[in-house]
Nucleic acid binder design. Sequence first.
DNA 1: CGTACTTTTGAATCGCATCAAATCTGGTGG
DNA 2: CCACCAGATTTGATGCGATTCAAAAGTACG
Lengths: 215, 215
Amino acid sequence: MAVANDSPYDSSHMKSVILPAALKALLPPTLHARCEAGRFPRNDRIFLTGARPEWMFYVVSGEVTLERTGLQGEPVVLQRTRQGFVSEASLKSSKYHCDALAIVDTTVVKIPIRDLSAELDRDPAFASRWIGMLNGEVRRLRLHCERLSMKSVKDRVLHLIDTEGQNGSYTAATGLKSLAGELGVTHEALYRTLAALEKAHVIRRAEGVLSSVRP
Amino acid sequence: MAVANDSPYDSSHMKSVILPAALKALLPPTLHARCEAGRFPRNDRIFLTGARPEWMFYVVSGEVTLERTGLQGEPVVLQRTRQGFVSEASLKSSKYHCDALAIVDTTVVKIPIRDLSAELDRDPAFASRWIGMLNGEVRRLRLHCERLSMKSVKDRVLHLIDTEGQNGSYTAATGLKSLAGELGVTHEALYRTLAALEKAHVIRRAEGVLSSVRP
DNA sequence: CGTACTTTTGAATCGCATCAAATCTGGTGG
DNA sequence: CCACCAGATTTGATGCGATTCAAAAGTACG
């Protein structure tokens, strides 16, 4: 039969792909060949709430958001990923608990979950690396919660530069409007706060890079 | 020598302890005997930022907060645990990145990290269960972030009952003031919002239990 | 019974959301 | 090349909701 099939368990058109170094170091060689490349144009859904996870997605370039539908039907952003796994917590889930949306043109590496899971059970060293990755994710999420607990936009911005920035500089790769959503504030409030912080010589701004004046 | 020694690797006073069912099911039998009970009176620090992790703590009763020191020296609550692991993300860390504080009298089970880590490397099924536990933690944290992104106290309260409650009822075991901190709002705002929601027959309240009227 | 803490209500203030609108930007097609 | 459009960026005005400060009432505990 010549029907198109996107399942990872159809061996008829397996294609390996160049892996980012971080992913190559994490995954055992066995899995390297089973990874595939994926491309999603802006505004494409990568997966939907309720669907059965078959692939584990690793964002190589672009940006993906995880979204749930709020109580009033409005979309709420759970997470934003520019580099790294999406939905790593759905490894053992029978269905997704949120949507994944490519908010710009995005390329990913797809790993078949069945193989990934089997390999985690078989290879303790790999499982250990995977646990380390999840530990990092937990820490990052806790910092994000800490940031969202701050009452003023100013505090959130400074905390962001402090905790997510590289030696005093944070790069807002996908624009300030997107950053505002991540910080849980309106874009107007963020623009105003940045302007005020810049005028007060607390931060500097250039090409979407926010730098703390005194690191 | 008769010096007191709290290290898990001093075999002279090993004492096993009754484990909660959830913990017993997670840990391999090998580790059961190496667990110890711990008791921390209210306001005791369980560990400090910068210290080397030797024990993994599982809260059995009471309440523990993870705290970091904010930019202005004020303590910021990263997380609140009434039941489950504290600092599970520090499994492989050489030092803690926050303080743990018993905010009421608390009992914990302590597991020696060295043994825990060794067993994770040796027992793939255990590693798999551990990964499942971390996956749940990641999901819970994402929901917490989602909640903190909501602008009104009302939305946060309803979201809390929705996502953390048992069929429409959330139990604020350690008081509403503590809950306010978890929701990232002042206790005054929480009291007022709860009163308003109750008057509007959206929720009911009894003995620290918040119930959604229409589940 | 006094102390410490939580719960509750009141009043004033401030920061952010909201609505509105202007400018700027990059990209597309005539 | 210019007209045009969609989206990001920016500034302005207004109102609401939460913070803040204050104080009273309730509760647990020694």
